[in-house]
Amino acid sequence: MTPDEIGRLMAQAAHRAFTDGEAGDRAAAARAEAAILHDLRPVRPLAPDSLYTLILVLLCAAAAVDAASVLGMAGLRALSPAQCVLVFSALLAGACLAAVACTRAMRPASGKNLGPLAWILAPSLLAAVVALAFEGYGTGGLVNEGVPCLKAGLCLALPTGLAISLLLRRGFILNRSAAGLAAGALAGIAGVAMLELHCPNLKAIHVMVWHVGVVIASGGIGFFLGLASRSRLVAR
């Protein structure tokens, strides 16, 4: 039996199942029409995805540079040109990926969601770039030197995430946990970028654990906030 034959059988079976047929359709359409026509106002279609992606990346870059210029650019001065290129290219690629995921979350049927593998691979690749760019795996003072970096990164990521979520509200989000994860990861990247500009500690283990950790923590917070808001919506 071919897929077409199965399809024909399915269509026949469905036709038999809809006993109230056109009358039921008409009644349902009349109810739907009554519900939407009283609030019919012209709307402006959402701007192109590429524009939102650009705005989101620029928003993160501006947040990172602003915060680092307040805290000081000691990290930027400590980096060699090769390290600068490697680290900031990886951050830019990550920001573009997260921004695309955010814009896709804003519009229904706008494309394939990023799968869990992409979300696991992206921070792993960032950690691999850090391993390539920096040296030093000694664990002396790892926690004492790292916690302030994590705190500073998250302190920037939280308001940036809030600004991103305000922008995302322009759209119509269906999958809130995926949108939260994308917004959190993007805000976390702004936090890492700020730390790279500000923190002069270039030990690979420090950057890998405490700087890249900001993206993971911020993405996790975004995911759970999205999940919580979906649960609240369902409970209503």
Binding site: A35, I36, M106, R107, P108, F172
Partner: peptide, 21 residues
């Protein structure tokens, strides 16, 4: 089914600006 249909139309109405012509 009919409740879901109404709910969907309300959502479609709220989301109509996200449809790209």
């Amino acid at each position: 089914a009919d409740d879901l249909l109404q709910d969907t139309w309300m959502r479609l109405h709220r989301a109509r600006h996200t449809y790209r012509p």
